[in-house]
């Protein structure tokens, strides 16, 4: 038995090996660098020669006057993202899946995924062009019709929605690709059988398409939880201004201002490590939840 196992397993291990080597060399060896978080790191002394300072950087982080604000802002944006952005690509995929005209589908899909290649500088620039309080096209229209101007870019209460909608605009079509691939694996015979049974399109979507996507959804959701403290730096940084700072300051922008521009690697590594640990806890939690509800989970 053992011999036949190895005969069967050997090629499989061989297949895994190159990837594994990659992870060891380029991901695990550099993890020694995490120790920078516990040092007063100087590039000239190196990781071996810098002074150990224990948890000093973590004390500093938790003692920051804004720590709770940063945490709240980061978690709120992520909550918005998971609740509203995460389902958007799924919805797009299900809609596209219902379109049978091939050419039309190809055209529409290309259009929907194209925004993924427009950079945030441009997206934020266009939004300001349209919604700037004074000169924005939309606001001039509103004012012309006698409505109140919409302070979309500066009123802090709009910030999260603007950020979210821009994310959806940029990413929904692109994110749909992965769900479409999963849908493509559905056996067409299932649809035919359902049609013969008299099921309408809505029922087929509910009973065939969605279940086929279940495992992908769970995997993506669990992986998403690992980044519950991460938000794209560039996007938020571009949207940030003096007025919305109270809701837009998150760990990334904060670390950029206090650490990166001065080359304070120890502090930014400490903040990164803190974020990773929160991510790990969330992943373990959600993974268990998934398993308890009868899904396979990620590991």
């Amino acid at each position: 038995m053992a011999k036949s196992y190895w005969k069967r397993a050997f090629p499989v291990y061989l297949m895994i090996l190159p990837g594994l080597l990659f992870f060891i060399v380029f991901k695990y060896i550099p993890m020694v660098g995490i120790s920078i978080a516990f040092m007063a790191y100087s590039p000239f002394d190196g990781i071996g020669g810098s002074e150990w300072v224990g948890l000093r950087h973590f004390h500093r982080l938790f003692a920051e006057g804004d720590f709770l604000t940063l945490l709240r802002n980061t978690l709120m944006l992520n909550l918005f993202d998971v609740l509203f952005f995460f389902p958007a690509p799924l919805l797009v995929a299900l809609l596209l899946n219902e379109i049978k005209a091939k050419r039309f589908k190809a055209a529409v899909q290309t259009i929907l995924y194209a925004p993924n290649f427009i950079s945030w500088v441009v997206i934020v620039g266009i939004t300001i062009l349209l919604f700037a309080t004074g000169s924005g096209g939309i606001n001039q229209l509103l004012a012309g019709w006698g409505f109140e101007r919409l302070e979309l870019m500066t009123d802090p209460s709009y910030f999260r929605w603007v950020w979210l909608l821009q994310n959806v605009w940029q990413g929904a079509g692109w994110g749909a690709i992965i769900f479409l691939a999963a849908l493509a694996a559905v056996d067409p015979l299932l649809y035919e059988a359902a049609a013969i049974d008299g099921a309408n399109r809505w029922r087929m979507l509910w009973h065939i398409a969605l279940p086929a996507l279940r495992s992908v959804i769970v995997v993506l959701l669990v992986l998403r939880m690992g980044h519950v403290m991460d938000l794209g730096f560039e996007h938020i940084f571009l949207l940030q201004n003096s007025m919305n700072q109270g809701v837009s300051e998150v760990f990334e922008t904060f670390v950029y201002k206090v650490g990166m521009t001065q080359g304070d690697y120890s502090y930014s590594t400490a903040v990164g490590l803190f974020k990773s640990i929160v991510g790990l806890i969330m992943v373990l939690f959600v993974n268990r939840l998934a398993k308890q509800t009868g899904q396979e989970g990620v590991f």
């Binding site: 300001i128 004074g134 000169s135 870019m153 500066t154």
Partner: peptide, 11 residues
């Protein structure tokens, strides 16, 4: 207030 300063100065 009097519209002398650009309304969009914040951004």
């Amino acid at each position: 207030q009097e519209g002398v300063l650009d309304k969009d100065f914040v951004t």
